[in-house]
């Protein structure tokens, strides 16, 4: 009976802690259909978890917004390629087997 109840609870009700443990997978779209349903059923009925999910997502969005690459024009790369190539040419070891180029 206890096993049956535990099983029943596990299938129909997740705790907030369990929902928290699924957050990364949920946001990543990795939960299987059944678990996703349970997750969303809990979220719909639990304001705390709903707010926590909102903050969790907002955190990810804020990190993306603060991406240093956003502050860059799309192509400093051509100049950087040239700089890098001439840097390398200054630092290459002299060829060991007298292949001159």
């Amino acid at each position: 009976m206890a096993t049956f109840l535990t099983e029943w609870r596990r299938r129909w009700m997740l705790t907030c802690k369990e929902v928290n443990g699924f957050l990364e997978a949920y946001v990543d779209g990795r939960l299987d259909t059944a678990t996703k349903e349970q997750f969303e059923r809990h979220i719909n009925g639990c304001e705390t978890c709903r707010t926590y999910l909102q903050q969790y997502r907002a955190t990810i969005d804020l990190v993306k917004e603060a991406d240093p690459v956003n502050d860059h024009p799309p192509a400093p790369s051509d100049a950087l390629v040239d700089e890098t190539l001439s840097f390398l040419r200054d630092h290459y070891e002299p060829p060991t087997n007298n292949a001159s180029s």
Binding site: T15, C16, K17, E18, N20, T48, C49, T51, Y52, Q54, Q55, A58, D61, L62, E65
Partner: peptide
């Protein structure tokens, strides 16, 4: 976060980053 009996011990307020701080 901390949990007790499977529930969060703290409470959370919704965020509104755009309203609370400049970019």
């Amino acid at each position: 976060p901390d949990f007790r009996f499977g529930r969060y011990t703290g409470s959370f307020e919704p965020w509104d980053p755009e309203q609370t701080a400049e970019r």
